[in-house]
Amino acid sequence: MLYFAKKEKGGTMNMMNQAYIAQLSGTGELWEPLWGLRIRLTEMEQRLLQTSVVRRLHFIHHNGGSYINTQHVDTRLQHSLGVFALGAYYCPDQPELRAAALLHDIGHLPFSHTLEQIEGLNHHQRTRELLYGEEISGILAAYAIDQGQILNLIEGRIPSPLRNKENRLHLDHLDSWVRSGRTTGLLQSAHALVPRISLAGPNLSTDAETADLLLRLIISEAEFHASAVNIGTNAVLLELVSVLIEQQAVSLESITAMTDNSLEALLLSSPHTQEEAQRLYYGSYPLKITRDRDKAPVDAYHATLSKLYLSLPLIDQGQVSVESLPSYPLLSGLTARLGEYYIYWDS
């Protein structure tokens, strides 16, 4: 039996009439549970949250196909709202930055970065198209917000806490690292981090102890990206979607508008991919990876890990350098993870 608070004399809260705190939209406030932030939404932000372009992100997994074998199940919208909440907290009176934070991932493809090795699929280009598309541009224009400035903030051409090109800690990566750290148990709560991070011009800055914690999160995230559960599942997904394209079962243009679920359904139903897709989704544990081509069968899948996200925290002025932090030497070994991988089924 469910029990609800009754309205009493003096106007006691009637829970039946209250908006659910964790709604994604529909109220004038956003509660962001990872960071523990409550943000008052502007009218423009409420309208952006209700667009199909932004809503679609709730059906794209933040860490690509690794959700198949891990508990990394956050969505691109959850990540975007985390970045937005941080942007609104640190820069409450900058509507362009707040809008850029909310929109920075709108171009992501199904399975996030997984499909970007396919020529013609690029989430940066798709973001530009959607930003200047009718649905988003109409809202921005109604509030005198320039798409060009939003794009420059998203791409880091205007240095800001959202993103920069100087390999400095910024909000986009910060939310990703902390989100993964919570999933893996490396970080129990993000709430205490918020007051320990501050603005230093267009950058984020923190104390030495917090900076070392962030370094450990960076290292953990890089190790995850180079792990078998990430590389293996995404390599198979990439190959299977490539087969669908080659067989003209799906077009590049239609993929850009799809969600993980809609592309999954096609993979699991198409005669070109059905058998291998079912094996991946329901029995992927025998999937192995190696860097030694001679140890993999001739029909092994191939993957290239070409990038790790290693932007460094900026330490408050007058304290130690980031190079002197205890965890800093561990960064040097991460570049060895870049390169070629071969993925196969352990029979």
Results as ranks from 00 to 15, higher is better:
residue 118 I to R: 06
residue 251 S to Y: 06
residue 295 K to W: 03
residue 284 S to Y: 12
residue 175 D to R: 03
residue 207 D to N: 11
residue 173 H to I: 06
residue 49 L to G: 07
residue 288 K to E: 14
residue 344 Y to M: 05
residue 45 E to D: 11
residue 163 R to G: 04
residue 115 L to C: 09
residue 256 T to C: 15
residue 214 L to E: 00
residue 8 E to C: 09
residue 306 S to V: 09
residue 210 T to I: 15
residue 258 M to C: 07
residue 140 L to H: 13
residue 339 G to Q: 05
residue 184 T to M: 07
residue 131 L to A: 10
residue 201 G to V: 02
residue 299 D to I: 03
residue 54 V to T: 13
residue 14 N to I: 08
residue 86 L to N: 01
residue 325 L to A: 10
residue 58 H to E: 11
residue 216 R to Q: 14
residue 76 R to K: 14
residue 201 G to T: 04
residue 111 F to Q: 03
residue 11 G to S: 11
residue 77 L to K: 01
residue 18 Q to S: 06
residue 310 L to Q: 13
residue 154 I to C: 09
residue 147 Q to P: 15
residue 222 A to N: 07
residue 183 T to R: 13
residue 60 I to S: 00
residue 205 S to K: 01
residue 9 K to H: 04
residue 193 L to E: 04
residue 83 V to E: 01
residue 143 Y to V: 10
residue 84 F to A: 04
residue 188 Q to S: 09
residue 54 V to D: 12
residue 82 G to M: 04
residue 182 R to Q: 13
residue 193 L to P: 01
residue 197 I to D: 07
residue 202 P to R: 06
residue 337 R to V: 00
residue 225 H to Q: 13
residue 18 Q to N: 01
residue 100 A to D: 13
residue 18 Q to I: 07
residue 220 S to W: 05
residue 250 V to E: 00
residue 191 H to D: 10
residue 114 T to Y: 06
